[in-house]
Design a binder for these strands. Sequence first.
DNA 1: TATTGTTATACTCTATAACTATA
DNA 2: TATAGTTATAGAGTATAACAATA
Lengths: 146, 146
Amino acid sequence: MRPTQAPIGLLLAQTAKTVGRAFDDALAAAGGSLPEWLILLGLTRGGHDSQSDLAATVGVQGPTLTHHLNGLEKAGLVTRTRLPDNRRVHQVALTEAGRAKFHRLRQAAMAYDARLRQGLVEDELDMLRSLLGRLAANVEKDGREG
Amino acid sequence: MRPTQAPIGLLLAQTAKTVGRAFDDALAAAGGSLPEWLILLGLTRGGHDSQSDLAATVGVQGPTLTHHLNGLEKAGLVTRTRLPDNRRVHQVALTEAGRAKFHRLRQAAMAYDARLRQGLVEDELDMLRSLLGRLAANVEKDGREG
DNA sequence: TATTGTTATACTCTATAACTATA
DNA sequence: TATAGTTATAGAGTATAACAATA
């Protein structure tokens, strides 16, 4: 057995810190933040049954989503209305300003991604996607062998 | 030109969230946290000229390190003394309890890492390390082409 | 004056518990 | 009672600006 290499978890945490901060900076320069971007992205893509559903997509709990939606609504980027059929369910919709902001943040995100991908060919990116997916799967809650 | 694939930055952010939370949980179960672990690891490895130096290793600013060192010192895990030659410089040292805690957290970190690495062979881990390193390099401040 | 670290303060993201509105 | 979402509250991690101690 060879000696254990640098822990992959630590390396991933450090990379995520470096890379994540750069992403935050890129979004901030465009007037946004990561959770804001994820929410606008989720709303644009659509396909959510409820806010809880959207929260899960963004990767936060309900009250955290509410917190961010408050900000987005106050900024005039989204509206919240109850569904007529089931008034418990709130329908979150992008306003025109919200769509505009989405596009601005998308520009920033795409430029950032281009920078991040520099020097990596498509095969390498696919390999990376695959490896990251396997790491995430290994630590997901239902992992029985960990 | 093929259509752009899922942004790698987004995937990395999401993976980091999932994997990072699992790491946090693992450390929390052993009575620690990520910044605490990084600091104890840095102190154990040694080779720092100053606290600023340690802060850089951990990836935080000076006051953030001070904040965590306050907690570690209050918990009896580290001591802070001034260097006789240059009393501006504070010498941070692990106590016996600090070393014990380091070992406990290391157990947790190693177990976590084993779980994270499940099903990945050494070549794949090396590939992943290389790819992550290249991503980090691409967004580091002095990148001129981004 | 320059350097090392701390204090004071505040912000962002996140969460849990308790609550309201609706069914 | 059960479900969707909000309010109230709190905590962790981080940062900037101003400060103190030392050189």
